[in-house]
């Protein structure tokens, strides 16, 4: 049982994914001579640095190729309809959907170091809520509550350290210390 809201795959999309996984795993296996060095290896074969990753990658390649072969066999037996092709294209474009949210996340990480944890969290939370359509006042209050919860539990409660942005230095010592400690 999986969540009905999870994106559903179609056969062509699954095959494209299997192809990517197979290609990456073959590439990693091909790099084994470069990526692992025996150094002064003098023990038996079982101690060689390449042994464990070699076995793992060999199994990975075999499993990925088997998945790909199975998908290809399925596709040969039941050729894809034009609708399936169109859906596959649409779904593969959908792979980029999380990229948008991860881009906001990357900006959030950058902002923490430049404007401080609390302001950037507040902006991130409210911005993301607005982006996903939660614009009613109760969601704004919920977002503010979430940001304050983060400060209260993690900064004040558990003492998680965050880098202080440079502009905190502009404040008098007492305020600067409070900002560093809490925000």
């Amino acid at each position: 049982m999986t969540d009905p809201d999870e994106p559903q795959a179609n056969r062509l999309e699954s095959m494209a994914l299997a192809l990517i996984f197979a290609a990456v795993s073959v590439l990693l296996l091909a790099l084994i001579g470069v990526a692992t060095r025996t150094g002064q290896a003098s023990g038996g074969w079982w101690t060689r640095p390449a042994f464990a990753p070699g076995v793992a990658l060999a199994v990975l390649v075999a499993a990925n190729l088997l998945t790909l072969w199975r998908d290809l066999a399925d596709l040969r037996a039941n050729p894809a309809t034009p609708e399936e092709w169109a859906e596959a294209r649409e779904k593969m474009v959908g792979w980029l959907r999380p990229a948008e949210f991860l881009a906001y996340y990357a900006v959030y990480i950058w902002a923490i170091q430049h404007i401080g944890y609390f302001p950037s969290t507040l902006v991130f939370v409210l911005g993301l809520l607005w982006r996903v359509g939660l614009t009613a006042p109760r969601w704004i209050w919920a977002g503010i509550g979430l940001s304050l919860f983060m400060i209260g539990v993690f900064r004040a409660g558990l003492g998680v350290w965050m880098p202080a942005p440079e502009f905190y230095d502009l404040f008098p010592d007492a305020i600067r210390l409070a900002l560093m400690r809490w925000f």
């Binding site: 996984f21 795993s25 990693l28 790099l31 990526a35 692992t36 060095r37 025996t38 150094g39 002064q40 290896a41 023990g43 101690t47 640095p49 390449a50 464990a52 990753p53 076995v55 793992a56 990658l57 199994v59 990975l60 499993a63 990925n64 998945t67």
Partner: peptide
């Protein structure tokens, strides 16, 4: 698919310094 996922996990576990010869892997 579970075999592939497991093998990928086993591979990830080998990344970094290995102990026998202190060499780096991947």
């Amino acid at each position: 698919e579970a075999t592939a996922a497991l093998a990928f996990g086993l591979f990830l576990a080998t990344v970094g310094i290995e102990t026998a010869y202190s060499t780096q892997r991947y």
